[in-house]
Every structure is written in structure tokens, then in C-alpha cells.
């Protein structure tokens, strides 16, 4: 039974990585930039949720909504102020700016909320699920996390394949110049993808803090880096790739912790990434890019 428990926990942790990775991958697909501040938006989402539940005593669902709205706005503002002026700049300049934004968010959180870890209240008030006469216990947050991840995947896939705006996003990710010729406002589209990515980060933040209930200004960085790894593993720019990469990474991490070594778990995760990239440089579901001559 412990194998099954580990597998379920791995899928659940992986679902959180997947939700974060979706934000990474969508922003990369359209803005062609690695938003290294993405992980810190998770942390902001966590704090927003924490404040609403602990200080305002509002129900968890209001807290989640507020976190999503707050992070969506944060994403739009960050893109407008920090990244948009660099639209024509070298990608290295954008990358360094993203790292700067990451530190800015972490230190702002430190200033506002202090360095001491906050005990995060669970936003999922359901009892755990007992199966096989109590041999297998699955916490409600684990189930909710997986469910939310599946819902988000379905919603995003539908959005990008069926709606006009979603198709416009795909058009922008392929060829911004041609997209403009269609009448698509590329700036608005980029802004929108940041909004979606940051909204997802907020959801991931709430789920992450519910599953691992300590909240600090640096809470978002490690999951952020791992989700980035997941996005690359699955093939950056690909939505199913992000989901697959995220879940795989979560499962590998939990199995490594359970069967090999807790200390070495992260090293193993990144080793897997290196091996996959050696064999498939574009990631598991990524497209090989053939340079046109």
C-alpha cells in the first residue's frame, strides 16, 4: 500500500508543479521569455489567501478568489512595467529583469509579512478518504489538487483550441508579425497570457500551502524552479507537455524521497531532467525546431 500512497502523493505534488509549469510554458510560448518571477507569484498568492482567511475571517473560497484576482492583477502590472518596455531588447536583458522582479517580490513580501513562517490554514475542509479498510488514506487536499489540475488542463485546452482569443494566442506564439496582420493586438495578447499564468500561479500557491502548510517569502522559489524544470522536461511551450512534465517530476520526487534518499531527492529530479534533455533536447512532447534555410 505504501507504493500506492507514494504514487498518489507524487501525482498530487506533480499536479501543483503542472499548474505552475502551465504558467511558465504559456508565457514562454507567447512572450518567448522565461519569467523567473513566476514562482514568486505563487508565494504572493499564498500570502493573499492567508491574510483573507486568518485576518479577515472570510470563507476559504473567497480567499482563493481574492488570491487569483490579486495575482492576475500583479501579473499584468509586472508585465506592463518590467517586461513590456523590453519587448525589443535582447533576451538576456529580459531574463535578468525577470530575476530582478523575483527578488523584488521576495523582498517586498519580507518587508510586508516578515521572515517568520506562517502556519497556513487549510482551505479544503473535508475529511480524508479511507480506502481498503483504512490501509490507504488519501487526504482531501491531495484529491482536490489532482482534480483542480485536471480541470485547469481541460479548461486551457478548450480555451486555446475553441475560442477566438485562445486561437489568437496560438497564432501569436507562432508568428507575431503575421498575427498583427490578422488584426490581433499582440500587446493585449501577451498581457492576457501573463494574467492567465499568474492566476494559475495563485491557485498553485493556495494548493501548495495547503499541502505543505508553511508560508515564507521564499516559499515560491523552489517549486518555481521545479515547475520550470517540469516545463522543460515536457517540452517548453507545450501545454500537455507542462502537465506531463509536472506530474512526472512530482512522482519522481516522491519516489526518490521514499525509496532512495530524502536529501538526494532534488538531485535525482534534476538528474532525470539532464538525462531526458540529452536524449530529447526539445523535451518529451516538444517539437524539434528545424531552422529554415
Amino acid at each position: 500500500m505504501s507504493f500506492l500512497t507514494n504514487l498518489i502523493n507524487g501525482i498530487s505534488l506533480g499536479s501543483i508543479y503542472a499548474i505552475i509549469a502551465l504558467g511558465y510554458t504559456m508565457v514562454y510560448g507567447i512572450a518567448k521569455m522565461l519569467n523567473f518571477a513566476h514562482g514568486d507569484v505563487i508565494m504572493v498568492g499564498g500570502y493573499l489567501c492567508f491574510i483573507v482567511v486568518s485576518h479577515l475571517n472570510l470563507p476559504p473560497i473567497a480567499a482563493i478568489l481574492l488570491a487569483v484576482v490579486g495575482c492576475t492583477a500583479l501579473g499584468i502590472v509586472v508585465e506592463r512595467l518590467a517586461y513590456k518596455p523590453l519587448r525589443q531588447a535582447a533576451s538576456l536583458a529580459v531574463l535578468i529583469t525577470a530575476i530582478g522582479v523575483s527578488y523584488f517580490l521576495q523582498n517586498s513580501a519580507l518587508l510586508i509579512w516578515g521572515a517568520d513562517p506562517k502556519a497556513f490554514p487549510s482551505v479544503v475542509p473535508f475529511p480524508s478518504l479511507n480506502l481498503f479498510g483504512g490501509q490507504l488514506t488519501i487526504s482531501s487536499i491531495t484529491l482536490v489538487t489532482v482534480l483542480v489540475c485536471v480541470l485547469i488542463m481541460v479548461a486551457l485546452t478548450t480555451f486555446t483550441s475553441k475560442t477566438k482569443m485562445g486561437k489568437a494566442m496560438r497564432a501569436c506564439s507562432e508568428d507575431k508579425g503575421a498575427a498583427q496582420l490578422m488584426g490581433i493586438n499582440v500587446d493585449t495578447t501577451i498581457s492576457m497570457v501573463f494574467a492567465i499564468g499568474s492566476g494559475l500561479a495563485a491557485i498553485a500557491g493556495v494548493l501548495l500551502c495547503s499541502a505543505y502548510p508553511t508560508l515564507m517569502p521564499t516559499t515560491g522559489s523552489m517549486p518555481g524552479i521545479k515547475a520550470f524544470t517540469a516545463a522543460v522536461l515536457g517540452g517548453i511551450g507545450s501545454i500537455p507537455g507542462a502537465a506531463l512534465g509536472g506530474v512526472l517530476l512530482g512522482v519522481i520526487e516522491i519516489f526518490a524521497k521514499a525509496y532512495i534518499s530524502t536529501q538526494l531527492a532534488d538531485a535525482i529530479v534534476f538528474a532525470v531532467l539532464i538525462v531526458v534533455l540529452l536524449i530529447r533536447p526539445a523535451g518529451l512532447l516538444g517539437k524539434e525546431i528545424h531552422e529554415k534555410v
Partner: peptide, 30 residues
């Protein structure tokens, strides 16, 4: 550039630049 189409000007660019990963129908919708 994105306001030109509503004014009635369309450009069929050099090198075609169709959206390769989108279907024919989706390209037309764009």
C-alpha cells in the same frame, strides 16, 4: 499594424507565413 485590417487593408506577406501548427480552418478564422 493590427488596426489596418479594420480599415480595409490586408497584407499577404512574403514567405506566406501561415500558422503552421494551426489547421487550415483555424488559419482562415484568424
Amino acid at each position: 499594424a493590427h488596426r489596418m485590417v479594420s480599415r480595409g487593408i490586408a497584407l499577404c506577406p512574403e514567405g506566406r507565413r501561415v500558422f503552421q501548427n494551426m489547421t487550415v480552418r483555424e488559419n482562415l478564422d484568424m
